[in-house]
Amino acid sequence: MTTPVQRVTIAAIFSVFFRIGLFSFGGGLTGWVYRDVVLMRGWLNEDEFLSGMAVSQILPGANIANLSIFVGQKLRGPLGATVALLGLLTAPFFAVIALASTYDLLKTLPNAETALDGVAAAAIGLILVVVGKGARRAARRAAAFIAFLATFVTVGLLHWPLLAVVVVVGPLSVLSAWLRRSADA
């Protein structure tokens, strides 16, 4: 399944990723990208997004930078990827420097740290939405659900190395999807 071909403008890509960079206080960037790109605009479907997520995590680099490149490339090739990454990083580049310049003042604000913890907790909710969608999708096939659980338990709870887990679980999960497709065909 691929989404219908549609021409997304370069300006639209920049503007979406610029806003994500600007507003994504407390983390949760994956959730922001999912919301803006899949849910609100339908630029990617869920499988495309979630598999892009897996690729972004396996490769070195900030997951969110890789995900932006994945989305940008899919929409408009090399220019799309460049613009998505630039859009994502522009606002945070200036924001961290602005915050650092005023840090001594900010530290004196009451409750700043508490507020930040609250923002970070709420931002996790954004990512949980993505997990909810992905888990519901995975639950349609036993093999997919097992792959989801195995990945989560080994990496998240047992702290096994991410790469090793993906190298084992990934191919098995892909193989089962392939066999099912072959059986259908």
Binding site: D47, S51, G134, R137, A144, F148, F152, V155, A177
Partner: peptide
């Protein structure tokens, strides 16, 4: 398509682990 379908639950598991 098989890669996409197969990697999508792995991606979901990794996100939850990150959380």
């Amino acid at each position: 398509t098989a890669l996409e379908e197969g990697l999508s639950p792995v991606g979901t598991g990794l996100i939850l682990a990150g959380i």
